[in-house]
Design a binder for these strands. Structure first.
Lengths: 210, 210
DNA sequence: GCGTGTCGATCGATCGATCGATCGGAACTG
DNA sequence: CAGTTCCGATCGATCGATCGATCGACACGC
């Protein structure tokens, strides 16, 4: 028998990604997890505690991977490409969890929201720094770097909305097309290099073994 | 005294944009609209009927304006610019309504969802046609036109997430920066022309008088 | 080896509150 | 008076959450 807490968490992610946090009750969640509604409270604290835990985990994982991806040793173009690919692949491989992370912020009370928003801000700071450094070096030429960051993040978030592995796109194509679009949006005309493609493949392997 | 139905609709948009459809009850809605919960049902049918009506109105308005914006008489670059500006300005001027339209689809039952999804597909078809025509003429060079359409729409949807008129960006700057980014993403390097800026100003005037 | 006590895990039953929705009738309008 | 608008009262259902009770597993003293 699988670990009960993991089953509860997986069921919550599935339900909340589909119907939203307020759109499914705890009895529905209990049935999906195969336990009684009372047992839920032995593991999750309140319903909102579970939501915050799911969001915290998703953001911490993304943040950890992103920090490794923007090591200062890398070049400007590689740093932004790595962030785009990591973000897009995460949203494509774990669409349900990322949908909960991205769209259920408003269901958090102010205490929980402060922590989660801080994590998200930390993550977005990595993007802003990568963009700003590209602007300083002259490689990126966005008319407004902050708007470019917001536009890029929204564009990449959207993958969790529409991507399905059943479609014509492979994960590699998905990630590389978004890398190209992101660089083009920032004013870089050159096509992605072979090293970017190779690191993209490494990332895809990482996503599935983790 | 303002029209009761309009007050109800405005209150629903405000509440549902903030807390979500399932996140606010009809008593809360009634209080926000200044009527009793029973009175709501004199105007709105069921709660979900009201949601569908709000989404239908928003999409029909957007569709009508977009159809006028893509008259075949215009050039390729102008068509896509007009779609981007119209979409961005709508999301900036009416963020609450567009948030409900964009993010409450999952709260609709299948019967209502079919109608709303059909309207949204009609709207997105206008974007796809504008992009495809640009590809045929050789002006646009996206590696994958369908992915480019999805990326552009998500990028422009995001405006309703983060834009605030209190910030440093004017509506005109917001719309023009997104026009530039959209064209750059599609592979167009040239800066936006004076006619695009002029039409953007016309659109802003239209948004506020309508 | 065997009784005893403690523990986490789990349950059915149930709490007060709120949910969406409905009713008959009062209040207003023309 | 007829029609429209609106509301207080209330419906059954469901909400998130909690209760006491039970179960098996494990540790301890003798």
């Amino acid at each position: 028998m699988a670990d009960t807490e993991a089953r509860i968490r997986a069921a919550a992610i599935r339900l909340w990604a589909e119907r939203g946090f307020h759109g499914s009750g705890i009895r529905e969640l209990a049935e999906a997890a195969g336990v009684s509604s009372a047992t839920l409270y032995h593991y999750m604290g309140t319903k909102e505690d579970l939501l915050a835990a799911i969001m915290r985990d998703g953001l911490l994982r993304l943040l950890e991977l992103a920090r490794a991806a923007v090591k200062p040793a890398q070049g400007t173009e590689e740093r932004l490409s790595a962030l785009v690919q990591l973000h897009v692949l995460t949203h494509a491989v774990r669409p349900e969890q990322t949908r909960v992370v991205d769209w259920e912020m408003r269901s958090l009370s102010t205490e929980h929201a402060a922590e989660i928003v801080a994590l998200r801000d930390e993550y977005e700071l990595l993007w802003q720094e990568a963009i700003d450094e590209g602007c300083r070096s002259g490689l990126f030429r966005p008319a407004h770097p902050r708007v470019a960051r917001l536009a890029l993040l929204e564009m990449c978030n959207g993958v969790a909305h529409w991507y399905t592995p059943d479609g014509p796109l492979t994960l590699e194509e998905l990630a590389l097309r978004h890398t190209e679009m992101a660089l083009a949006l920032l004013g870089v005309a050159v096509p992605v290099g072979v090293d970017v493609v190779r690191r993209c493949r490494d990332l895809i392997t990482l996503m599935w073994t983790d």
